[in-house]
């Protein structure tokens, strides 16, 4: 096996993540925890967009619902984090399932706008449902406690995030290689063809939306615990752009790519602190540059250039194309 093959690099990354808190200062630990949370978001979104091919813009909203759900259940009902957190994720999953309903009839840009409209609606609810969401000013969440474990809040949350990333990463890897994953790809590559192969569109679209909602919800719960503060502006369209950028930069249709994309994006955003005043310009340029010069994302680049990066699902294809490349046939599907 190649020294810099996929498995070795992933193991090295994991080991690094496991020991990182021993030598990182508070700032870098915060950045590292942010990366872990974004990894979850990117994996969920990649399943929906990269595998199932649904051009949805509601991920930031579901991230917000997870964060609000987790935070509000603690604040209003005095529930412990450990109960509120899974419930928050569950609520986000439900919302994900609900938005899959219009997705059945819509595709491409129409789906994009209807999910964008949903995201705007969610923002509006956060802002206006004041008795519940505390409106525009946001609210503080109670600090999470790891008692009886002898571990500080920051470290505990970091390792909780790391464990969840490991579990959900493995889950996603298995999912996309299963029957379900192949059904998603079939839906992406041609809905009518998929249906004729016996793929139940309703079921699989709903499943894809539900899964991405679940991942976003988990990420949201962790995010609220990390910040101890939840407010609407954390879940706006800039957040959406970051999510989309992560999966494009990492590589569509790849779980490992999502991990790399999330890490890269958070790193870029923090590194851009150096170029004060022109961050927006630099961010835009980097985004365009990645899309132009690494059309398959980081993962596409690695698959091509580095031995040991081929993913089992794609090994046979060895294509240079990005996974969802719109061929001339499928361009007609765009409305």
């Amino acid at each position: 096996m190649a020294l810099f093959g996929r498995r070795n690099v992933l193991v090295a990354m994991l080991l690094f993540a496991a020991v990182a808190p021993t030598f990182l200062n508070a700032y870098y630990l915060f950045v590292a925890n942010t990366i872990l949370i974004y990894v979850l978001l990117a994996i969920g979104l990649n399943i929906l967009v990269g595998y199932a091919g649904q051009l949805a813009f509601a991920n930031a909203a579901m991230f917000g619902i997870g964060a609000y759900g987790t935070g509000l259940l603690q604040v209003h009902f005095g529930w412990p984090f450990w109960l509120a957190f899974p419930l928050g994720a569950l609520i986000a999953t439900m919302v994900g399932l609900a938005i899959s309903l219009p997705a059945l009839r819509l595709s491409g840009l129409y789906l994009a706008l209807s999910t964008l409209a949903f995201a705007q609606f969610t923002q509006w609810v956060f802002l206006n449902w004041e008795p519940v969401t505390f409106g525009a000013g946001g609210f503080k969440t109670p600090p999470i406690s790891f008692a009886p474990l002898p571990i500080s809040k920051t470290l505990g949350l970091y390792y909780l995030s790391l464990i969840l990333v490991m579990v959900l990463f493995a889950l996603a890897q298995n999912l996309v290689r299963s029957r379900i994953g192949r059904a998603f790809v079939a839906v992406r590559d041609g809905e009518i063809a998929a249906e004729s192969l016996g793929v139940d569109l309703l079921r699989y679209k709903a499943l894809a939306f539900g899964i991405s909602g679940f991942y976003a919800g988990i990420a949201g719960g962790l995010y609220s615990a990390m910040l101890n503060f939840v407010s609407p502006e954390g879940f706006d369209l800039f957040q959406m752009v970051i999510h989309k950028a992560m999966i494009i930069v990492g590589g569509l249709g790849s779980i490992v790519g999502s991990v790399l994309g999330a890490g890269t994006l958070v790193f870029v955003l923090e590194a851009l602190r150096k170029v004060k005043g022109v961050q927006e310009i630099a961010f835009g340029a980097i985004l365009v540059g990645f899309i132009l010069f690494m059309p398959g994302g980081i993962i596409g680049y690695l698959k091509e250039k580095v031995r040991g990066w081929e993913e089992p699902l794609h090994r046979a294809r060895a294509s240079r194309r990005p996974p969802v490349a719109a061929t001339s046939e499928s361009s007609e599907v765009r409305p």
Binding site: F30, V31, T34, G138, Y223, L227, S231, E233, G234
Partner: peptide, 10 residues
């Protein structure tokens, strides 16, 4: 953004 503010301050 609240998260970016915490990052900036740290």
């Amino acid at each position: 953004d609240p998260a970016a503010a915490i990052g900036a301050v740290k």
